[in-house]
Design a protein around this nucleic acid. Structure first.
Length: 276
DNA sequence: AGCATTACCCGCACGC
DNA sequence: TGCGTGCGGGTAATGC
């Protein structure tokens, strides 16, 4: 799935235009097509479709890795893209993406398609977004999360730092790529136990998380594998997907291993395992 | 027992 | 052709 920078880029494109498409704020739904029902969690697809017809999009934003669309009286449409989802605005008479799971056709002739090859993505239509995103941890870029807060939260867990950073109830928005990039930037081994990190390391890690997310946002996210979303952050990877290539800091070959069932890339020289 | 942590698994596309 | 891999996370299983 797209992580925080990719989801933010998609939300911004829907809100303000971008990624080769114009804004859809203000667009009115003329008809709805559900092509794969399990993509809709709630309400039942027929009710989901009926509620959206005639609704006008007021605003779009991001919370964690969720997209949130405000459709006024119809409610809030939340979309989680998981591994392979995308939201695409189609000009009039444009063919649908191959794995379109649902489609909103607008009165102006355009359409919004939820494309999702791996079928992991999910959609909710609710009256209160908190019903879906209420369990998420803090936003990493929100200044209200202080180094002291972050340090205290780290001390509450004994697990490996990498899978903890990817746990959305702990911190919202990081995934496999940006976690590896942040740990490399902070010089922290991905298997370090969270409670073993010092106050100084916690502060350095939070700063590194913010720096890599900011870099990702400025590049409009990363495009990897066959999923091209228009971003360029893949050209700035310093750890992720660089197994065997020299660390830009020290020249030591980057190592690939598995941590928490996920591919993990790190520099054994710059990111030594520390115990406590 | 009860909580925290870890493992499995869900379609599909692509590269080797 | 077959196999390994993957921008994720719910849930079952296991560990402390």
């Amino acid at each position: 799935m797209p992580e925080l920078p990719e989801v933010e880029t998609i939300a911004k494109a829907l809100r303000e235009g971008g990624r080769g498409q114009a804004s859809i704020v203000g667009a009115r739904v003329a008809s709805v097509e559900v092509r794969w029902r399990p993509a809709i969690v709630t309400p039942q697809p027929a009710i989901w479709a009926a509620r959206l017809i005639d609704a006008t999009l007021r605003d779009v934003w991001r919370r964690g890795k969720y997209l949130v669309m405000d459709w006024g009286e119809a409610g809030y449409l939340l979309v989680h893209l998981r591994m392979s989802g995308d939201l695409v605005v189609l000009p009039p008479n444009q063919p649908l993406p191959k794995h379109t799971r649902w489609l909103l056709r607008f009165a102006d002739g355009r359409a919004l398609a939820f494309d999702n090859p791996r079928k992991f993505g999910r959609t909710w239509l609710v009256d209160d977004p908190e019903a879906v995103v209420g369990h998420l941890g803090p936003e990493p870029l929100d200044a209200s999360l202080t180094p002291d807060d972050f340090f205290r939260r780290l001390q509450q867990h004994r697990r490996q730092i990498k899978p903890l950073l990817m746990t959305q109830t702990f911190l919202a928005g990081l995934g496999n790529i940006y976690t590896d990039e942040a740990l490399h930037r902070a010089g922290i081994h991905p298997q370090t136990r969270a409670h073993c990190l010092s106050r100084a390391e916690a502060e350095r890690l939070l700063a590194a998380i913010r720096a890599v997310l900011q870099e990702g946002l400025e590049a409009n996210g990363a495009s990897i594998d066959w999923m091209y979303r228009g971003g360029g952050f893949q050209n700035a990877f310093r750890a992720y997907h660089r197994a065997g290539e020299p660390c830009y800091t020290c020249g030591t070959p980057i190592v690939r291993t598995i941590v928490g069932q996920r591919s993990t890339f790190f520099c054994p020289q710059c990111q030594p395992l520390k115990t406590c």
